[in-house]
Write a protein that binds this DNA or RNA. Structure first.
Lengths: 227, 227
DNA sequence: ACAAAAGTGTTGTTCTTACACCCATGG
DNA sequence: CCATGGGTGTAAGAACAACACTTTTGT
């Protein structure tokens, strides 16, 4: 056992869909390095802590979300020497998908946290500190890909949702309009994707829509497809 | 910067297809802990070394493969406290896909390395040291999934290969027979998957088969599908 | 009545599957 | 000639895309 000790951090890409666009939770750095720049929330993994546990702890600290029901998955690990000017730090990136709750992003220790449009951030490679632009790019691509073959889009929705709300998630994440009629058919016919609750709502305007919950499927057959 | 220093290792899941079955390169551990058990090859990341560089170095050490043309991708990172009884070690797993070369697995520092059938190893959760059974499970599932939507199967083949050799890769990795005729059509019609070299071979017996090389595509549209 | 969104029907096209069939070689 | 694998044709069925059309609400 003869190794170089390194810092191990868990960084979070927390995504949500708000106002029809995909947004990411960023914090404004209050200290050097990269003071004043935007960064992904994150922090060091503690001695007796699992990687995912650390990610959930950070998630709770940043969002105030009792994180048990929040979707969280590991994306990749970044360890280029020099990626953190303070020393050798290896960062494990976790992707979190949260519904658009009226949660006002409980400001914690980090200076100020806020939701920022993903398209804006990805369009400017210098906006983020460290190698976070790269990490965000990878995480967003993961999310986009997983919507195709998994029922993950429901993670962005409240417990009960309408088909068009679900379609809004796809359209925001993929940045692409989908045919409401074909989408409706495909989603409701795919075994285990969504299950009707029996209730209806008129919150989207027009004719009342059925409400659904996530189903039990973990993969979608056949997948939904992007153009 | 106040963190618990940890060891960071790169572990390798080196897969190949030999004799019609998917095999993984394992080493027999010569020292405690888990002395005498099989384990994935790997080692600590050095101070000035990138994670992928470390993985390529280990790959070269274990297989003697000048690794530039070998497919290597990160799978996931494992960091449960207690996964290594010697101390806190976080392990970044890399998946390598190599052709069935007549390379006799250059024995290095590690006691003895050999190819073992993946089905056998996965069938016995106690065969591998540490949490390597879990890591192997994840890596194999990644490989199986990626064959569907990427031209990755060619990474298991020599520079020039026939369609039925490529089919043999799919059948070994998925553990499932495929229709030779439909497979042929699908592969040759998918833009950029394979390109004919013009040469033919009779090494598979029967009528001479065209030889192909990998194409330039990075994703397959439409994907090949498992049952 | 009208606008807006939900949801169903239909039609032509494309993809998939299963399998019949012919081709080109080695023995 | 025959066995072996390479490769093409084809027809039935499934999935898909585009869009006309009906339903049910709020205003």
């Amino acid at each position: 056992m003869d190794f170089e000790p390194m810092g191990v951090a868990a960084d979070l890409i927390i995504l949500t869909v708000r106002d029809g666009s995909l947004q990411v939770l960023l914090i404004r750095r209050g200290i050097a390095p990269y003071k004043g720049r935007w960064a992904l929330p994150g922090g060091f993994v503690r001695p007796a802590e699992d990687l995912e546990t650390a990610a959930r702890r950070e998630l709770a600290e940043e969002t105030g979300l009792g994180s048990d029901r929040i979707h969280l998955e590991q994306v990749a690990t970044y360890g280029q020497p020099g990626r953190d000017p303070r020393g050798r730090v290896v960062s494990v990136a976790y992707l979190a998908l949260v519904p658009d709750l009226p949660t006002p992003v409980a400001g914690s220790d980090a200076a100020s946290a806020s939701w920022v449009g993903v398209a804006d951030v990805l369009g400017d490679p210098k906006r983020l500190a460290f190698d976070h632009h790269r990490i965000l790019t990878d995480a967003v691509e993961r999310a986009r890909a997983k919507l195709e073959y998994s029922p993950l889009a429901t993670a962005f929705c409240a417990d009960e949702f309408t088909i068009s709300e679900l379609r809004g998630v796809y359209e925001a994440v993929w940045g692409q309009a989908l045919d409401p009629r074909n989408f409706h058919r495909k989603v409701t016919k795919t075994e285990g994707f969504v299950t009707p609750t029996g209730a209806t709502t008129t919150r989207d305007g027009g004719r009342p829509a059925q409400l659904f919950q996530r189903g039990t499927a973990t993969t979608l057959h056949p997948p939904l497809t992007r153009a």
